[in-house]
């Protein structure tokens, strides 16, 4: 049996993901029956990822860049085991914690505390371990007095702070962060950036999706560029960012390099 510490943390081999999404506003039985009568189809097939292969060695911080809709989030969800691959194979060694674009808090009627506890239990933490972590999460997010309020009363900044605190305090082997670094006010951004730097310095594999090319350059050891579902480039962050910005023809101005 291979030990979990052998081999790359993440090995993605010829991965393709194809969605069949319904373009109905909301899928309904009556709608389906009506359409069957009219012989219409409203399913559209989208190829989100095409033949993507790469490996992430243990302890690497990998930056993932690409335009909106390039397939970055799909790639992150597939690595996290949320979406099944259509073709290819992914091997992941270690426990994954995700901070995906949608954040924590699946039920806005429940309090912050309930959302954190339920999210942690669903992610497979033991109750004891969750109790230890809970204090750290709350302390980091600085939301002590809001934890028992329903999450619908949270501002988007508070929401993001809690989500970030949950993800980084789970002590995962592999941390996936999808465009969630720029949350909260300037002070919290600095704090989360410091935390990211600390995590990146540890022996931890991190996938960082960001449009802030400056933080990719600062934090990452390697970078990949996804373009329309294909792996366009995988190299040192500087080289990938140069190629990407040249491609975008925007140049490295203040907007793309904006910190965090």
């Amino acid at each position: 049996m291979p030990s979990a510490s052998e081999g790359p943390s993440i090995a993605v081999d010829r991965l393709s993901v194809t969605y069949r999404t319904s373009i109905e506003r909301s899928p309904t039985l009556s709608g389906t029956l009506l359409r069957l009568g009219r012989r219409q189809r409203t399913v559209r097939t989208t190829q989100a990822l095409k033949d993507v292969s790469f490996e992430v060695p243990k302890g690497t911080v990998l930056g993932v860049i690409g335009a909106n809709g390039a397939g970055k989030s799909t790639l992150m969800r597939t690595v996290a085991g949320i979406l099944p691959p259509t073709e290819g194979r992914i091997e992941v060694r270690g426990r994954v914690s995700t901070l995906l674009a949608l954040g924590v808090g699946f039920n806005r009627e429940l309090s912050g505390r309930e959302n954190v506890v339920l999210g942690g239990l669903a992610a497979g933490l033991s109750r004891r371990r969750l109790q230890d972590k809970y204090e750290e999460i709350v302390a980091f997010s600085e939301l002590e007095e809001f934890m028992d309020m329903p999450m619908r009363t949270y501002s988007s900044g508070m929401y993001g702070r809690l989500a970030f605190s949950v993800a980084v305090n789970m002590e995962p082997d592999i941390l996936i962060i999808d465009e969630a670094l720029s949350v909260g006010d300037a002070r919290f951004r600095r704090k989360s950036f410091e935390k990211m730097r600390e995590l990146c310095g540890q022996d931890r594999t991190i996938l960082l999706v960001s449009h802030a090319l400056g933080s990719i350059r600062d934090l990452c050891d390697e970078a990949i560029w996804i373009h329309r579902g294909e792996l366009r480039m995988a190299d040192e962050p500087d080289a990938v960012i140069d190629a990407y910005t040249t491609f975008l023809d925007v140049g490295e101005d203040a907007v793309t390099l904006e910190d965090v």
Partner: peptide
């Protein structure tokens, strides 16, 4: 201390279906 949980040595393989 936290490594007592076997959560930390996980190995997942995701394949199509």
């Amino acid at each position: 201390v936290l490594q007592r949980d076997d959560e930390l040595s996980e190995h997942h393989v995701y394949e199509p279906h």
